[in-house]
Design a protein around this nucleic acid. Structure first.
Ligand SMILES: NC(=O)c1ccc[n+]([C@@H]2O[C@H](COP(=O)([O-])OP(=O)(O)OC[C@H]3O[C@@H](n4cnc5c(N)ncnc54)[C@H](O)[C@@H]3O)[C@@H](O)[C@H]2O)c1
Ligand SMILES: NC(=O)c1ccc[n+]([C@@H]2O[C@H](COP(=O)([O-])OP(=O)(O)OC[C@H]3O[C@@H](n4cnc5c(N)ncnc54)[C@H](O)[C@@H]3O)[C@@H](O)[C@H]2O)c1
Lengths: 223, 223
DNA sequence: GCCGTTTTGTTCTCCCGTTCACAAACTCCT
DNA sequence: AGGAGTTTGTGAACGGGAGAACAAAACGGC
């Protein structure tokens, strides 16, 4: 009798999509603490957002709460995980096994959140003797074979900035359709390929801007 | 004769602040290529944004272009750097020198973009013998002394999630007013303290969501 | 079986950010 | 000097997201 789309919710706002992983993490935390039920108020506090926003976000997925009671932690956790698509594991390749690539390869948060690193690639032959986090570092030339074999759709770029675009191009040609870029450069990719970036310098510079304003506001008119 | 605020531009929108570092990087790239002048169209293309958006963003800083000509690369670069506050170096402390902390300490992009790592701190005494990137790893207990000595206002957290909030509290108590958090947890901080987070898992999960939608759209009605 | 309490799901309004479109302003050429 | 061509800076329209406020629904007590 519901006039909504029955199970496949349509067009979730991007801002909501970006918060769903936060809710997922908050729910996992609550579950570990033995909490079986929580209100939107509690969950919102744990996730650090407004409770009205949380409820609106969840309403895009469907009606998974119970009025007067709240949400079943485990049930909601599963629904969000299913919506995001992390109920099954996503194979991931990391390209550029330098300082940052090593850290990423050793990051346990991948596995525990629905991602599995299937290969580490580097252009430098000297690196190919290394074994990092139980995986041997392989030649970048193996990219196509690995993508095909493991049906990889997500690639991580941790190479120097100058190499990033060419790596991205190779990834796209090999069939990868989602890229997470750590190199400080703007990547261009064809329609249908999602690119997200993580940029440490930008984050710091944003902090610096606000920091500077605090300093100026503090000194006011010194002359 | 300008009715604008003469030199200290007021309240730049947050979305604009987040893009200024991108423009700064694009301008640095153009300068390295020997370009002395560029139009908003060129710069926008390099930075990967709409040219109207770029012009509006720059208009918040002042009127630094010349109609019919474009922008002087070096001049605009300096103006943005000054606005962000990266014409002088900002001292930074990194707490948690594990996998990620090592990579961050070795990251050359800090120094070249207006930041100087003045100390590496870790709670584990076994780490205190290490020297990373020319800096010895010191005890977390030294935080207050270091913050006071170097007048540090920016702190980076690369500890496990469980420790992040207590580290943040100590930072705030020591006088740090801007925090960049890599731990996958929601931090709370008092008014006046800026907290930004970099969350790898969230980025990947956002990619996974869109990836899943692509897959569903491709298969349509399989039943 | 009914009423009060609790909490969700949703509507409505406001605000911020994006984009279009164009007048103002500058250069260069004749 | 004047006009054609360019490019900036900004006013205005538009769309999306945030938050307040409330109606609908479920539970519990009697
Ligand atoms: N280290 C950090 O904490 C940090 C932080 C933020 C951003 N970044 C960025 O991440 C990237 C990597 O940083 P890093 O410190 O690990 O650098 P790095 O020099 O230590 O490692 C880069 C690795 O990429 C490999 N490589 C180079 N060209 C390649 C190619 N075409 N194909 C495949 N592999 C290639 C190199 O052999 C090297 O192993 C850089 O763009 C850097 O700006 C690093
Ligand atoms: N490794 C990655 O690529 C990666 C990526 C994204 C996020 N993260 C997050 O970054 C954080 C660090 O990751 P990691 O892989 O480097 O972990 P790690 O275990 O290798 O390093 C953590 C370091 O923090 C230190 N530490 C623990 N408690 C502390 C405290 N109270 N005060 C000071 N230091 C303390 C530990 O001694 C250790 O050296 C984690 O929260 C992780 O989830 C890591």
């Amino acid at each position: 009798m519901t006039a909504r789309t029955p199970d496949s919710a349509r067009d979730i706002p991007e801002a909501t999509v970006a918060r769903l992983p936060v809710y997922l993490r908050a729910l996992t935390g609550l579950a570990e603490d033995g909490t079986t039920t929580c209100s939107s108020e509690e969950l919102a506090a744990t996730a650090g957002v407004n409770s009205a926003k949380l409820r609106k976000d969840l309403s895009y997925l469907g009606s998974y709460g119970t009025r007067g009671v709240g949400y079943d932690v485990e049930y909601l956790r599963y629904q969000i995980a299913r919506e995001i698509g992390v109920t099954q594991d996503w194979p991931v390749v990391i390209v550029g096994i330098g300082n940052l690539g090593h850290a990423l390869a050793n990051y346990s948060g991948f596995r525990s959140r629905g991602f599995r690193v299937v290969a580490l690639l580097d252009a430098d032959p000297d690196r190919h003797t290394d074994v990092v986090a139980g995986l041997e570092v392989r030649s970048f030339e193996d990219l196509e074979a690995i993508v095909t074999e493991h049906d990889v759709s997500i690639g991580v770029i941790a190479t120097p900035a100058v190499a990033a675009q060419s790596v991205a191009d190779r990834m796209v040609a090999a069939g990868i359709t989602s890229i997470l870029n750590f190199a400080p450069t703007v990547l261009t990719a064809p329609e249908g390929v999602d690119v997200r970036k993580v940029d440490l310098s930008i984050e710091l510079q944003i902090l610096a801007y606000h920091e500077q304003r605090k300093a100026v506001a503090g000194s006011e008119d010194v002359s």
